[in-house]
């Protein structure tokens, strides 16, 4: 658990370099970091994504599909456009009257432009790198987070139902997310390739059924 902690500054430092090399096969670096290096077929996208999900970290926890990075780039950039309403709204306000100065509109515009660029480049990559999950008979263990690093434990006994979900962007990339609902909250394991997501869903619901019978 502490290892995860120490890892953070490092990954934050080298992420910009990584970003520039993004178009080249990323697998190499990832594999070098992870406990189980796998051999690659660099040209093939499919092979790439399925291998990413087979990777385990030093605790034996799994990664998400590597396609997540590209899917999140698109959804993140699109989502960040929503925040553009703030500088645009302010701009409209400052045009209409003398009361509001114009310069904050430009400052905000630059900030939000930067944000969109980051969402379209580095952020999804770091997010992917940080995301790990582990499911066994007893519990679901999630580690994630860019700014707020979070680890969550959900006992299998508490799982009420499991769903897979797929939005338009995920569908484009052959991805799906698994959502786990308890009596008190909901947790999502995002961006798994479809077969992995289906398998995980049936595995969790099977474990949950067994755990309930044991009660």
């Amino acid at each position: 658990m502490n290892d995860q902690h120490n890892q953070k500054p490092e990954s934050q430092q080298d992420s910009p370099d990584r970003e520039s090399r993004q178009d080249k096969p990323v697998d190499k670096e990832k594999a070098a970091e992870s406990a189980e290096p796998a051999e690659h077929a660099e040209s093939m996208e499919d092979a790439k994504s399925s291998r990413a999900e087979e990777l385990r970290d030093e605790h034996g926890h799994r990664y998400l599909s590597h396609e997540a990075v590209n899917a999140w780039r698109i959804s993140g950039a699109l989502g960040s456009l929503f925040y553009w309403l703030i500088p645009l709204g302010y701009g409209a306000l400052s045009m209409s009257g003398d009361l509001w100065p114009e310069w904050p509109a430009y400052v905000l515009g630059v900030i939000f432009l930067g944000f969109t660029v980051l969402e379209a480049t580095v952020i999804p990559w770091i997010r992917w790198k940080r995301w790990r999950y582990h499911v066994d008979r007893n519990e679901i263990d999630l580690r994630r987070g860019l700014f707020v690093v979070t680890r969550t434990l959900i006992p299998i006994k508490r799982v009420q139902h499991v769903d897979t979900r797929q939005g338009p962007v995920y569908r484009q990339f052959g991805l799906a997310s698994v959502t786990v609902t308890t009596a008190g909250d909901m947790h999502e394991i995002p961006a798994l390739s479809e077969p992995v997501a289906d398998e995980l869903r049936s595995k969790i619901s099977e474990y949950a059924r067994i755990a309930r019978e044991d009660l």
């Binding site: 902690h5 953070k8 987070g145 700014f147 707020v148 690093v149 979070t150 680890r151 969550t152 434990l153 959900i154 006992p155 508490r158 308890t182 009596a183 008190g184 909250d185 947790h187």
Partner: peptide, 25 residues
């Protein structure tokens, strides 16, 4: 308890701090 989370944002990590979050139904 339905789940337990331990969170640490960037500022907290710099100071070796964390937050504990418990969810009940």
């Amino acid at each position: 308890m339905q789940s337990l989370s331990v969170l640490a944002n960037w500022f907290q990590r710099r100071k070796q701090l964390c937050s504990v979050l418990v969810v009940v139904a």
